[in-house]
Design a protein around this nucleic acid. Structure first.
Lengths: 221, 221
DNA sequence: AATAAAATTTAGATTTGTCTAAATTTATTT
DNA sequence: AAATAAATTTAGACAAATCTAAATTTTATT
């Protein structure tokens, strides 16, 4: 079965939203895809008709087994291409997302397998996300709590443990956001505060409480 | 300026048709793109509105300077990707066209330049077609007359000098078509006939007259 | 439990690229 | 040069993906 680029983008977005909650809602997906709720409803009908989705009107939705299988194929392609762009074409890990968003829609199973072979079967992409193999299996994510990041290991903020406005205010003040590249300079045992350094800026320290809400992924450079 | 995949396919097809005649006609383009004449007319209006085309109703059309520039960018991408697929991913030169047809529409100037660097600035693609550089300049085509092909050099038929039904009947009988891989086994001076061998089949000979209507491109394997 | 608010869906419109069938223009033949 | 044939364009329709605005359903609040 082949899918349009638009269908694939919806499938992938639903897959990602599903990772943090069992059921996805129309508004969440609309926000994720920067589109309107009505457009989402339209596409949900199509994906349900193609039997990729469990969906009852007004009740939320999630991918079924086939939907997940398709999602993993797209994610596999995305992450393999990212790996190629960084390792072979010398892109920075933070420059490749948009290009990979296009490349992931190229339709050719054999191309993906040959690319995987050429790259020597990488297990993680440059952002530290695991690359599914041709059966959709992958290693557990390398995301870890900032408190567990080893000293001097370069990492990027991948998610935050809450969306409270107090937390967001603090993060904004400290200049920390999703994708921020940092490393731990020192850990203090007295109060478990952590001194971190964000690329090319002076180090500063953050509380244990803050560090515990931050998740990061080690990155290669 | 960015173009849709469909616009790019029209631009590229017009470019190729222009190589053998000054003006392109609606029906020719429709045949080339496997679409209807009415659809071609619709698209011609759009391309003219975007100022890529010299076009007067009923009078034929051709790309203007800007149209040619855009066409060469697309062709550059197509041929660089073909080179990558053959040299790095181990595809056969005859397996890569369809995949490159998709890859050529990926939008990223920097990607093309990095790919070119990675591939070490190849001058010809695996079919023997020249790859335009970033300014649209390229070497002359490697296409040559079959009578000039050196012995044992592998080549692929790239075009035929006429479309007469008598010629096509003969070619069909001999099993020769566009893309047929062959090599010259021997040349006879008496009648200038040429013995050729098509991949994995017994050699046979063809007349000078026939050989003169066939154009080929040397290929790597 | 009734009402207000929020989320979701439906109805109907728009854009892009395509199509068929009819109309028009150009080319060819007698 | 008139008639016929071929090529091209126009008119109007359709599918895909989106949108706005209105209607409906669900959730939250008094």
């Amino acid at each position: 079965m082949n899918f349009t680029t638009s269908e694939e983008n919806y499938i992938k977005a639903i897959y990602h939203l599903q990772q943090s909650e069992a059921m996805v809602t129309t508004n969440e997906l609309a926000a994720q895809l920067q589109t309107r709720a009505a457009s989402v409803t339209d596409m949900l009908k199509k994906l349900k008709a193609k039997d990729l989705l469990l969906y009852e009107k007004y009740q939320g939705f999630k991918l079924n087994a086939e939907g997940n299988r398709v999602a993993l194929i797209i994610i596999r392609k995305h992450r393999l291409w990212e790996y190629f762009l960084v390792h072979n074409l010398n892109f920075g890990w933070d420059e490749v997302h948009e290009i990979a968003e296009e490349l992931e829609h190229i339709n050719s199973q054999i191309l993906v397998e040959r690319l995987d072979t050429f790259l020597d079967y990488p297990k993680f992409d440059p952002h530290g996300d695991p690359i599914p193999d041709s059966n959709g299996k992958m290693e557990p994510s390398k995301q870890l709590n900032l408190t567990d990041l080893e000293i001097d290991r370069m990492a990027a903020v991948s998610s935050v443990g809450s969306q409270s406005s107090e937390l967001l205010e603090l993060l904004s003040h400290k200049g920390i956001g999703i994708g921020t590249k940092l490393q731990v300079v020192r850990k203090f045992t007295f109060d478990h505060s952590i001194e971190i350094e964000i690329e090319n800026t002076p180090p500063f320290s953050i509380s244990q409480q803050l560090a515990q809400t931050l998740f990061v992924k080690p990155i290669s450079r």
